[in-house]
Nucleic acid binder design. Structure first.
Length: 582
RNA sequence: GCCCCUAUAGCUCAACGGAUAGAGCGUCGGCCUCCGGAGCCGAAGAUCGCAGUUCGAGUCUGCGUAGGGGCACCA
């Protein structure tokens, strides 16, 4: 149980006891909100319950708070009424016992039992295999991987998956681009396709194929050659992406092929199932999904400019319209059968495969903000398939604005000017990269200045956190080497404010894991890790270990160890290393 | 036109409806006989605007302003 839940319970018990003795009138006890006071001098926790009870109890809040504080009875903390709040302070004995608890938990410290062994999936990365992994994908995978780590710590059995968009017309355009580069590498005068992929990565893939395979594809029918070269291209790109992910300390259990959803027949099977429910209809030669079975609205099937939307919707009622989207394109428009299912059409069997076939609950999607419009569609698909909406959780993160000095650089894979993860890692390394990606909340857009990379790297707070960890390792080693006088027989005791503040900070770890696991907002770790490192620095500054009386030296060394465990765990959750020296 | 997201210190970001809005970087000023100074202490500096709900609003609601994304037989 989290400590805040413990406190909430003792408050409820206190209120009931007060009611039983007639100190408070009878009323239904509302949920008790327990939080950290902003000012740590007020205590470790506080509740505002008295402010909420004023009406029900027909008493002024400060009076209620006093009564509750008087009836709170728990060995771990004391209660005090201030300003209508009830503030709680851990007893030094309890804090000392928690240091022992952390040491005993070791690597399991911070773990929760939220998942109760249920299977959860985090699908992240999933960029089109039409080029090497870019900065945008970097934000995606760092968020996804950290969430996966978190759910694991929270007691879920976690599956990590990359969805390979190996179907659709982009793959063909990519294949043609690779083929052109391949032919060019062999000295042929082959033009790049229209809207082809102009990046150096695609050129490199073309050259690699030329080196490995020679001219054999030049002697095949072109259509066949493009397909074969495109397939090899995807494999080469995915191989490189896997390398990049390894470098980023992001691992996957599976790479799931979009194409397989159609070659297995699952996609068509589900379309028939939905058709039977009247949710799939034919319209102008294409197959459409219509959330409520209503007829397809006019003019749905074209892209429009902002002005055209404005005009088309001038008379439309306010609020979102029922979801309608093409699943299978009309043969009259798209002749190639492989390109007929749309991206959304694949989402339906993919969701089914995740939740119904593989039993993931929740299935978490990490999507860039360009997919924000797909959210209602995915939920509509879930409802149509009879899948609980709670099983589907979607994290939308904002894009990165790439700056060079004060100038914004528009990135594009197709244009070939996208910044690759590998290039950034060459400059700043995995830990700093992950820290930067994690330090902003997912729905905050942030700018990434390549001109300042080096400078930002040196000042990256991750080093401060790791420094704290390394410093503790060094102290522990020195204590052993120099045989400091330590007395492990005395009970642990702490009374210095810096010691007590540090312990209280360490005790927040399970709460932070809980917060990240439920909010799916991994940036909270960066703040927390920094606070722990800061509390340790202060402790280090003010409380000498070496040379203290043997019982106190031992207690402080144990506290340093508990800090090391907490820092290491937090770094590990964020996918960063916890170095023993720097 | 409709939908989603964002606006907090000079810059980059925190803050689960609570008490004096916190950090980092930058600026200014202190601190190394001592377990690692990648540190510690201090100063200046902020909630886009107008209403509303609430005992209490950076946080919720409405309107406005500014920015990003979406509204495809693209992926």
């Amino acid at each position: 149980m989290l400590i805040r839940e413990l406190i909430a319970q003792s408050v409820i018990t206190a209120i009931r006891a007060a009611q039983a003795e007639g100190a408070l009138p009878a009323f239904e006890v509302p949920p008790v909100n327990v939080e950290h006071p902003r000012d740590p001098r007020l205590g470790h926790y506080a509740t505002n319950i008295a402010l909420h009870l004023a009406r029900a109890a027909k008493l002024p809040p400060p009076r209620i708070a006093e009564i509750i504080a008087r009836f709170v009875d728990h060995p771990a903390f004391t209660a005090e009424a201030v300003n209508g709040f009830v503030n709680f302070r851990f007893t030094p004995a309890f804090l000392a016992s928690q240091v022992a608890h952390i040491l005993e938990q070791g690597e399991r410290w911070g773990d929760l039992d939220l998942g109760k062994g249920r299977k959860a999936q985090v699908e992240h990365g999933s960029a089109n295999p039409t080029g090497y992994a870019t900065l945008g994908t970097g934000r995606n995978v760092v968020i996804g991987d950290t969430l996966a780590n978190t759910l694991e710590a929270a007691g879920y059995e976690v599956h990590r998956e990359w969805y390979v968009n190996d179907a659709g017309s982009q793959v063909r355009v990519f294949g043609e681009s690779v083929f052109a580069r391949y032919a060019q590498a062999l000295g042929r005068d082959e033009p790049m396709p229209e809207r082809g992929y102009l990046g150096e990565d695609v050129a490199e893939v073309g050259r690699t194929i030329a080196e490995r395979e020679g001219e054999r594809f030049l002697h095949m029918p072109r259509e066949e050659a493009v397909r074969a070269v495109g397939q090899i291209g995807i494999e080469l790109v995915m191989a490189r992406i896997r390398q990049t992910m390894t470098r980023l300390n992001v691992r996957y259990d599976n790479f799931f092929s979009e194409k397989s959803l159609w070659t297995s027949g699952l996609g068509y099977e589900l379309i028939e199932r939905l058709r039977a429910k009247g949710l799939v209809v034919e319209h102008e030669g294409a197959l459409w999904f219509t959330e409520d079975g209503s007829p397809i609205r006019k003019g749905q099937a074209q892209k429009r400019s902002d002005e055209e939307y404005a005009e088309a919707n001038a008379e439309a009622p306010s609020g979102p319209l029922p979801v309608q989207a093409v699943l299978i394109r009309s043969p009259a428009v798209i002749p190639n059968p492989e390109e007929r299912p749309t991206y959304f059409a694949s989402d339906i069997p993919y969701l089914w495969h995740k939740v119904v076939i593989r039993g993931f609950n929740p299935a978490i999607y990490v999507w860039g903000e360009d997919h924000q419009g797909d959210v209602p569609r995915l939920y509509a698909a879930a409802r149509a398939l009879g899948i609980s909406e709670e099983a589907v959780r979607i994290v939308i993160y904002r894009f990165i604005t790439l700056m060079r000095g004060s100038e914004e650089v528009r990135m594009g894979k197709r244009k070939g000017n996208a910044l690759l993860i590998d290039d950034v890692l060459d400059e700043i390394g995995t830990d700093a990269f992950r820290y930067i990606m994690l330090s902003r909340s997912v729905d905050t857009k942030f700018s990434f200045d390549i001109a300042l990379l080096r400078e930002q790297n040196e000042k990256n707070p991750v080093y401060y956190i790791q420094y704290g960890h390394a410093r503790i390792c060094s102290i522990e080693a020195k204590a052993q080497e120099e045989q400091w006088a330590l007395d492990p027989s005395a009970p642990l005791r702490y009374d210095h404010p810096a010691e007590l503040a540090l312990i209280a900070k360490l005790l927040e770890l399970p709460e932070v894991v809980h917060l990240v696991a439920t909010s799916l907002q991994p940036h909270h770790y960066t703040t927390y890790a920094r606070e722990v490192a800061q509390a340790f620095s202060k402790f280090y500054e003010e409380c000498r270990i070496k040379g203290a009386p043997p019982d106190q030296a031992f207690a402080r060394l144990q506290l340093a160890r508990a800090t090391r465990i907490t820092l290491a765990k937090t770094l590990r959750l964020m996918g960063m290393s916890a170095p023993e020296r720097m």
